[in-house]
């Protein structure tokens, strides 16, 4: 759960993967995110919680420039990935998204084979020289996503034919096939049943040995279960950011307290 020393993954020894400072987001005249400073640690699961419209998904989408595709959206402030400004003009958003993978609320596999779903990213980024290398990446990614044993005999079957939980794990395999440094998850379990949810949570715990994971979730219990750091957003402000165990037993801000105890929606 929130075992900080689990397998040597001590929070204190983790270095910053993403450093955001003074991040502001406007959608037209709507000030959606107000002056957010946050440091996302390497090999740590960071949960973003808060009521709908609080800015948590907006902030998540800033981290791989998904907001670029929204015409009315203006982002200011600074977001550094390993010390490099991701909003620098020289940064190619497509390359950035290979480093900062994303998994969405609803499983959205391509209407292609299981194999092609995972192979897509490495192919477009020219990560492999031959079929054997690609095969190896597909297998390794499916193994990391804890899906290999369930699909290894039907890699040519269509990805959309899998169960919801399997589809979500396929999307996770697709996201990690490009060897990202950060994995963003926007409510990855909200369309899944409790067993598939537990499998994805188990997977998140595995993934943090290699990646920095950021998860947006409406389930506070899920945030408490899977994350080591929790950030609470409210009305576009980052209200509180701290160690998950402390946030859920003794939050410092009354707004955090009111939200996690079910007093404000």
């Amino acid at each position: 759960m929130n075992d900080m020393t689990h397998k040597g993954l001590d929070l204190a020894t983790q270095t910053a993967k993403i450093s955001a400072s003074g991040v502001q987001v406007h959608y037209g005249t709507n000030h959606a995110l107000k002056d957010v400073d946050v440091t996302i640690l390497d090999r740590t699961v960071t949960a973003f919680i808060g009521p709908s419209g609080c800015g948590k998904s907006t902030f998540l989408r800033c981290l791989n420039r998904m907001n670029d595709t929204v015409a009315s959206c203006r982002v200011s402030g600074q977001i550094l990935l390993e010390g490099e400004d991701i909003y620098d003009r020289r940064v190619d958003p497509v390359q950035l998204r290979a480093k900062v993978g994303m998994v969405f609320q609803k499983p959205n596999p391509f209407p292609k084979s299981i194999y092609d779903n995972v192979a897509y990213g490495p192919k477009i980024h020219g990560m492999t020289r031959n079929k054997a290398e690609l095969d190896a990446i597909v297998e390794a990614s499916l193994r990391k996503a804890a899906l290999w044993n369930e699909v290894k005999d039907r890699l040519d079957a269509t990805g959309t034919g899998l169960s919801g939980g399997q589809q979500q794990r396929l999307c996770i395999a697709r996201a990690i096939a490009t060897s990202p440094e950060v994995l963003l998850m926007d409510e990855p379990c909200s369309a899944l049943d409790p067993i598939a949810t537990a499998q994805v949570e188990e997977l998140i715990d595995e993934l943090r040995h290699q990646y920095s994971v950021v998860i947006v979730t409406h389930s506070m219990q899920q945030a408490a279960r899977v994350s080591q750091k929790t950030a609470f957003f409210h009305l576009g402000n980052l209200v509180e950011f701290g160690e998950t165990g402390a946030i859920f037993t003794n939050p410092k801000d009354t707004r955090t307290e009111a939200y996690i105890t079910g007093r404000i929606g």
């Binding site: 079910g262 007093r263 404000i264």
Partner: peptide, 13 residues
């Protein structure tokens, strides 16, 4: 907004 406020789910209170 303070913790003395009621829960949204009143049966919890």
């Amino acid at each position: 907004m303070s913790d003395s406020d009621s829960h949204i789910v009143s049966s919890f209170d």
